[in-house]
Simulated assay, not measured.
Amino acid sequence: MYFEKLSDEALDGMSHEDAFDYHTAAIKEAFGLPLACQRERLKEKRKFSAELRIHRFEGASVGFLASEDYSAKMDVNARPSETMSFVFLEAGATAIGQDGRFTVLKPGRLFFFNTARAADFHFFTPFRQHVLHVPKSALEALFPSLERTTATAMTCAGNFLLLRNLVRATAADNALEAASIPALESLRDTFVSLAAMGLSEIFRTRLSDSPSQAALKLAAERVMTKSMGDASLTAQAVAAQCGISVRKLYQLFESEGGVMEALWRIRLESARAMLLSPWCKAMSAAEIGFACGFKTQAHFGSRFRRAYGISPAAYRSQRVREATA
């Protein structure tokens, strides 16, 4: 694990130029990129600062970067193993040029690039982003059309939304360094699989191999969450939306008692959240149950009491009383 928080506190005596050099050197070292960085009108702006976190594991890395505006140019990287970098922009405005394509990015979108090939980066404003590096060979094994899709802006939806959320959680997890090697290998495979599945969705290309079990399970849970309001939702429909067989779907949820049990769990957890949400205040407990896919009020109440030991209406009242006590 690599962790460093960069701030102005230790840099009070530095010039603007020295502060910029200090922070960009840390960024280059953390992400392993041969960047040449510059900043226009350096002396006219406030002192450069940045915050950086990164975890490295089993040929991959996950990081977070918040920084002032600057530009960077990357020549060909001489590292022996190529990686693909996925950049999820959280705030600010940025752009990347690679392979003859130039992409302007807005918050809520992502782009990816090959870290072994020349690229230009422009951060027009202060920005925040999460970054994922995965081995090119591992990703290309699942998604062979990799070379023609770099420096493309994409929306964080579907499997890319899952990938972004997993990257966020991992970047913030300071306990990651204590994880075992098999656990880290599994995490890397999940990142690679979700990335390949996201690219396959965007470019409508079939995967050449089966993604990891963990990634497929996350994708299936996303489908169930999105469609939970459909009371007639079946395992067959979930499998079809995931592009896998029903048998494979059942294998993914075997440890949870089956696909339908997993679906009921998702519905119950969503209903519980809605019961406490101020946005759902006007909805009755029965209406919330119907919205989450329960066919009758009695069925919703029975399932809820079995899971939480209390009726939906009593649960809502109890939590409201606790919050206002």
Rank of each mutant, 00 (worst) to 15 (best):
Y2E: 09
G13C: 07
M14F: 09
A19Q: 02
F20N: 02
T24A: 01
Q38S: 08
Q38I: 12
R39W: 10
L42G: 13
E44A: 11
R46S: 06
A50F: 04
H55T: 01
H55V: 05
F57N: 06
V62Q: 00
Y70A: 03
S71K: 15
D75M: 15
S81G: 02
T83L: 11
T103H: 13
T103D: 06
V104K: 15
A119C: 01
F121N: 03
H122L: 13
R128T: 06
T150S: 11
T152L: 02
A157Q: 14
G158T: 10
F160N: 10
D173A: 14
N174K: 13
D189W: 11
T205I: 15
T205R: 08
R222L: 11
M224E: 05
T225G: 11
M228P: 00
A231S: 13
L233D: 02
L233T: 13
T234F: 14
A235T: 04
Q241S: 03
C242R: 11
C242K: 05
G243W: 06
Y250H: 07
Y250I: 04
F253G: 05
E254H: 12
S255V: 15
S255E: 02
M260A: 07
L263P: 00
R267C: 00
S270D: 05
M274E: 08
M274L: 15
I288R: 02
C292N: 08
K295P: 02
F300D: 00
R303A: 11
G309Q: 00
G309N: 01
I310P: 02
S317K: 14
A325I: 10
